[in-house]
Design a protein around this nucleic acid. Sequence first.
DNA 1: TTGTAAGCGTTATCAA
DNA 2: TTGATAACGCTTACAA
Lengths: 341, 341
Amino acid sequence: MSTILDVARLAGVSTATVSRVINSPDAVREETRKKVQRAMKTCNYKYNALARGFVTKKSNTIGLIIPNIDNPVFAESTLGVQEYVEEKNIKVILGNTSYRPSQEEKLVKVLRESQVDGLIITSTDPTGPLVQALVDEGFPFVLLFSTIKGGPISAVGVDNYRGGYVATEHLVSLGHKRIGIISGNFSVTDRGYHRWCGYRGCLRDHGIEYDENLLVQTEYSLSGGSKSIKTLLELSEPPTAVFCSNDYIALGAMKGAREMGLRLPDDLSIVGFDDMQTASYMVPALTTVRQPAYEMGRRAGELLLQLIEEPGNPVQDMMDTKLVIRESTISASHDVDKDSK
Amino acid sequence: MSTILDVARLAGVSTATVSRVINSPDAVREETRKKVQRAMKTCNYKYNALARGFVTKKSNTIGLIIPNIDNPVFAESTLGVQEYVEEKNIKVILGNTSYRPSQEEKLVKVLRESQVDGLIITSTDPTGPLVQALVDEGFPFVLLFSTIKGGPISAVGVDNYRGGYVATEHLVSLGHKRIGIISGNFSVTDRGYHRWCGYRGCLRDHGIEYDENLLVQTEYSLSGGSKSIKTLLELSEPPTAVFCSNDYIALGAMKGAREMGLRLPDDLSIVGFDDMQTASYMVPALTTVRQPAYEMGRRAGELLLQLIEEPGNPVQDMMDTKLVIRESTISASHDVDKDSK
DNA sequence: TTGTAAGCGTTATCAA
DNA sequence: TTGATAACGCTTACAA
């Protein structure tokens, strides 16, 4: 593999000149430039960005840490950050935590050793020591799908409390009184917890008594949803509607409910959270609280690059959430014609 | 940021010794090792993997190029390669091509400049000049979701012809005669083309005349599926069954068909390709040809690391495909009770 | 506009 | 078991 030095010799110039034609072509006389470019061709020169990163102390690479690329909402946010940073010629190293804090910790270590210029983290624990350490050391990072609302941290997220509130309110307005909730485990991320708080707040505001049996916590997975709905449905007084703390869980819940012999949405209303790409393709089409995952990813990329440019000035960007009403929710008192649909 | 030199001075040893405690701790006396480790702590030393990569000429990083992380089947294969290579402490830089050859070309350039040790590519054009150049230069790479069957290239894929054949045969065995096919554009990747060849071969073997009006090529997207099914359904003699060249398209087609007033599967049978995670969660649950995307990703990772270890010896691994029959396909001559379901 | 030469943080060779 | 030191491919003052 030929280096800048080979090119320099071949072209009869110094390495500095070769470096210039690569980085600031205008700073070198056209004639020389051509000569150098010809030399690069003939010895099939390939630029070594790693060597450059080594000297400039910028790898032009960022790390992106997410729980699980298999969840479409994270695939979308990932696409968002990628497409944004790519415009600035930045590469992204991707890591999945599977919601394991130990894995998250390992990833930030590994990525920092790789000299990434910054980190975008969809953290399981935004108030934990890992994040704190990053803050203390002044390392550039931004939290994505963040729940924090203050402090010296850049973040992009949505108001999960409000999202949970709105979802529940929709159900209440439809006349539902027994409203269940299937949430990701509060211990694995607090996003689910905040949505539950919104749910509970809404119930309170509408004078509906909170029943703790109506809450089930589970993994963020399809099967988590389908298992959990069964638990809820086996209650002596089962819910007529349920709020699932993401679409992935909602999809599982739909299947589980159907396996129990329920017809949707007639026998059970379901609202999700995320509005993943396929939400409108389900049957019934899923009513859900939309988070603009792609845009959030782009914005996180933008904030991070800003932060890398000039440290300090953390900004927290809370994006709007929006209730998208489709077919999976229906009035509690609708007529049910039991034999036809 | 402190370096190995700072640690060395602090511990009163040479940089070589510090390097040893990092890379081969056993090669240094316990006492010295402890001393060095203490020094690393006190100056908060952080290892610089980039500097190491610079001298060893191994970045311990690979590049993964896929068309689109938003398609669940690529998310799964991505997870597979990541989980495999992570066990070997290799990082992955991810790039999306959006099925654009120019973007694919740019990505291999950028990734190679970043000194990735190898590449895993889900290429749009496995026989094109881009791949050829990699072969010529002896750069380690493996093709994922590959369609090639020979040559000095490592690859993992499935037999797309056979997959298309089996899918079609299932429909034929159900008594369908008018069988449509919605495929990704043949020009963007040849996977769709091979599946179509299988479809056509099967028709021929069963004495069903091929009708070119029954083929529509589209983008690999949800909306591509829903637009295309409408085209098919508007034919004077519309199909009673359709083979979609991936699940993503199939999902779109289901929605499109429903929007045209059809009931599924009664009025139209649909078979997909991939068996993406949510395929069994759809309504009706999707009959599809399963590709083991996760395993394929892992295997691609394995082959690549082997190739990096010892170049040469390309291996092509064709994995088994399997028809998974669910609810979206139904006999052509079933009784349709038009008023109840 | 171009060249000289130091320096980036490691590893690796050789010698002690 | 340890140390001295060259080397890796590039950028960047500074000088010419």
